[in-house]
Simulated assay, not measured.
Amino acid sequence: MLRHTAIILFVLVGLSGCSTVFDKHVEYGVQQPDNYPILRAIGYAPIAPQPGQSSEQKSIMAMKASKIEAYRELAEQVYGQQVKGNTSIANAVAGDDHLQAKVQGIIRGARVTRSYVVGDSYATELELDMKLVYDLYITETKPRKVKKVTYY
Results as ranks from 00 to 15, higher is better:
81 Q>W: 09
31 Q>F: 09
72 R>K: 14
62 A>M: 03
61 M>F: 06
101 A>I: 09
119 G>S: 13
131 K>C: 02
115 S>R: 08
122 Y>Q: 15
121 S>D: 14
63 M>F: 13
87 T>S: 13
97 D>V: 15
152 Y>P: 09
122 Y>L: 11
55 S>D: 15
32 Q>Y: 13
104 Q>P: 07
65 A>W: 01
31 Q>W: 08
7 I>Q: 09
42 I>Q: 03
52 G>V: 02
84 K>A: 13
105 G>N: 12
90 A>K: 15
126 L>V: 02
9 L>K: 06
66 S>Y: 11
130 M>W: 06
15 L>N: 06
81 Q>F: 10
96 D>N: 14
72 R>Y: 10
93 V>C: 05
11 V>F: 12
21 V>C: 00
137 Y>W: 08
23 D>R: 08
144 R>Y: 00
65 A>C: 03
131 K>S: 04
44 Y>E: 14
129 D>E: 01
68 I>Q: 14
145 K>R: 12
62 A>E: 02
66 S>H: 10
84 K>V: 12
108 R>S: 15
29 G>T: 00
95 G>Y: 04
75 A>K: 04
141 T>D: 11
56 E>C: 07
59 S>C: 10
104 Q>L: 12
117 V>I: 15
43 G>P: 05
70 A>P: 07
55 S>G: 11
86 N>C: 09
69 E>Q: 15
40 R>M: 14
16 S>Y: 11
29 G>D: 00
103 V>K: 04
46 P>R: 00
119 G>T: 14
102 K>S: 09
22 F>G: 02
128 L>Q: 07
113 T>C: 05
13 V>C: 01
20 T>H: 14
129 D>T: 02
16 S>G: 12
6 A>K: 06
73 E>G: 01
73 E>K: 03
143 P>G: 02
60 I>F: 03
41 A>P: 11
48 A>V: 08
138 I>N: 05
65 A>K: 04
85 G>E: 09
9 L>D: 06
117 V>F: 09
104 Q>C: 05
26 V>D: 04
67 K>P: 01
19 S>R: 02
89 I>E: 05
114 R>L: 10
122 Y>T: 13
134 Y>H: 13
127 E>Q: 12
102 K>W: 08
25 H>T: 10
128 L>Y: 07
147 K>D: 06
6 A>H: 09
103 V>L: 02
142 K>R: 05
152 Y>S: 01
126 L>A: 03
54 S>P: 07
25 H>L: 01
77 Q>R: 13
75 A>V: 09
116 Y>L: 11
35 N>L: 07
36 Y>P: 03
93 V>E: 02
22 F>Q: 00
94 A>L: 11
90 A>F: 12
106 I>P: 06
12 L>P: 03
58 K>W: 03
98 H>L: 05
126 L>H: 00
108 R>K: 15
41 A>G: 12
45 A>S: 06
149 V>A: 01
106 I>G: 05
39 L>A: 06
63 M>N: 13
65 A>Q: 04
60 I>K: 00
87 T>H: 08
137 Y>T: 11
133 V>D: 09
119 G>V: 14
41 A>E: 11
10 F>Q: 08
